[in-house]
Each structure stands twice: as C-alpha cells, then as structure tokens.
Computed example of a mutant assay.
Amino acid sequence: MNIVFYYEYSLTACGPLNARAAEVCRKGALIRTEEGGYGCIQPWPELGDHSLQKELDALRKGNPLPLGKRALECARVDGEARAAGVSLFSGLHIPASHATLPSCVSPATIRIMETKGFKAGKIKASSNPAAALERLTMLASMVPSWRWRLDFNGSLDGNEALQFWKSLPHHLKSRIDFIEDPCPFSVPGWERLVDAGMPLALDMGTDTEHQPAVTADLPVTRIVKPAREATPGDLHDPPVFTTVMDHPVGQLWAVYQAAEYYRDALPTEIPLCGLCTHLLFEPDPFIDQMGGMNPQVAVPAGTGLGFDGMLEALPWKKL
C-alpha cells in the first residue's frame, strides 16, 4: 500500500444544500499520494455515505471504501498529468452548467445569474411538495426564459411524487428538464411516473453495485458524479455530470470528467451540467480561483487539476 497523506477541510454554505442535509458546514479531506496526485473525499452521511473517519480509516488500511476508491483514481490521473507537466484541461471545452439554487438564494442573485448567461436553474427541493411547488412557481416567474431541474433526493414516496407532478400547471411542466430522484428508485414505481409524463433523472449514489437495474426502455437522465462512480459505459442518453458539492479539487475532478466525456461532442449535444457548485460556499483561496458567477467554471492554472503551489503549501499529515 502506497503512503497517502491527507488534509482535512471544511466548507461553509450559505444555507441547507438539499432536502436531507441541514448542516451548512461540510467537512471533507484532500488526499495526496506518493506519486504527487491529489483527490478529494467529502461524504454526505445524510445520503447514505460512510463517515469521513470510516473512509479515511479504510484508506489507511489499504481497503478503500467507495469515495476513497474514486479519490485514489482522481489522484492517479492528476498525478500522471502533474508528472508530465501538463494541465488536464488542455484542449478541452468546459461544459456550461445550470445554476444550483439553495433555499437562501436571493431574487437579486437570480437576476444577476440570468444576466451572466445562466439558462437553467436547479432547485434542491424540500420534502414538502406544496412548498416545492410554491418555490418553483416564484422562481420561474422571475426568469421566464429559464428551464428548471428539481432534486428531491428521494425524499417523497411514489404517491407524493405523482401528486406533485399532477399539481404542476402546464406552463411549468413545459419548462421542466427533469425531476431528479423524486422518490426511491424502483422500476415499477418510476414506470408509473414516466407514464404520467414526468421527465426523470437518477443519481445512483455510491452503492452502485446494489442498486436496482435501470431498464433500457425507461427514459431516465443519468446524473453522473465522478466523486461517487466511474462514468458508466452503457448510457443511452447524454449524462448530466455534477459535483457532490465538495472542495474545488473534487469539483474540478467532475469538471474534467465531464469535459473529457464530451471531448468530441458538438455543443448542441452537451447537456447543461452541474459544475458551478463553488458558488454555494463562502469564498476561500481555492474557491476564489474557480471564477465568479458564470455558467462555465474557470479552471485554475497549473498542472493536473491545478492549484499547484496552494496544494503543496497545505499542512499535510501522513494517513
């Protein structure tokens, strides 16, 4: 087992970030391998992840858990690029993103986002369908040209999800790209929602080996989070890459994976992704280099994923 170093960090969000997570201070760890590559582990225990301590303990013992495995893969790819003295983003086009809108977002911020070029908003919806409808109605009225994506994090049951869809007026339904994880996935339950006309998106989470199979004839947009899984090879529709709202190192891993996947695609073939989540957190030296309120992330200079000197200067500890 190679020696791994780690650095624990915390990010402060401006408010709750999804239907299941009330904690605004998110903790994670950067890792550094002997080969000089970097990765990121930021669990969401509220969504079923192992704790950060369990992830680090497993990594220390040479038997990494799901997030640790992906962080090591990130560090491998990053380390190879750093050794070659090249940026992973060289020659790649950075996909544009939707605006991820936490509950604390202000009307003024949304209007600024519209002027900056954002064309869609993603709402981390509450587990209260009536409140989600009220919020969607209010936000959609502010930016009439935007399309919408809602993520319930599986917090509704099948009947609540169906009733929510039926409660949407036609003018809102026509502006919905997809509703992500309205309820826990099952083929019969989601077939019922598809039959009702609901456009669905699925985030498989970290435990992909034990998830129910998604049938090929079920029209579902796959949400791919590189921090959680390798990009599946059997996707029938263009996937939407998103971060797990983690440290900029982890966010840039998602940016790189999205850009690499769509390397040869025409611009019209690339869906809006969810890669601008640095805007959800209070600024810090790393976040400051990710760019301002723009639908395309500004990748930092340097080799690999970037941040060369800043990463080297962190107080690393041997795992």
Rank of each mutant, 00 (worst) to 15 (best):
V194K: 13
P169K: 06
S10Q: 15
H50L: 13
V297T: 06
P144I: 09
K61W: 11
A132Q: 12
S97P: 00
W316H: 01
F118G: 10
Q211T: 01
N294H: 14
V143H: 13
R32W: 13
C183P: 13
C273A: 02
I176R: 04
Q251R: 02
I270V: 10
P95K: 00
A131Y: 05
V255L: 11
P239W: 01
V249R: 01
D49S: 00
A75F: 13
L11Y: 01
L92W: 05
T277A: 07
M1V: 12
P188C: 03
A213P: 11
A259Y: 00
L88E: 02
L65T: 04
G205P: 10
S10T: 10
A29G: 09
G62M: 05
A213S: 13
T303D: 10
S97M: 02
L319I: 11
P66K: 05
E80Q: 13
N159Q: 08
F307R: 02
M310G: 12
L67W: 03
S141H: 03
R70C: 09
A227R: 09
R147F: 11
A83Q: 14
D151T: 08
S103P: 09
A96G: 14
D195S: 13
V4P: 06
L314S: 10
F5R: 09
R192N: 08
L65E: 07
V240Q: 12
T208Q: 04
L172K: 03
R149A: 08
L65D: 06
N128V: 07
A196L: 08
D177W: 04
C74M: 14
P267N: 00
G154W: 08
P271G: 02
V214Q: 07
P248W: 05
E229R: 08
I287V: 06
F5L: 11
F5I: 00
P315C: 01
N18G: 12
W165E: 08
V24G: 07
G274P: 15
A161R: 02
L235G: 06
Q251E: 12
E180R: 05
R20S: 09
V143L: 15
Y256D: 01
A130W: 11
L67M: 09
L252E: 11
I31D: 03
R175H: 01
D284I: 02
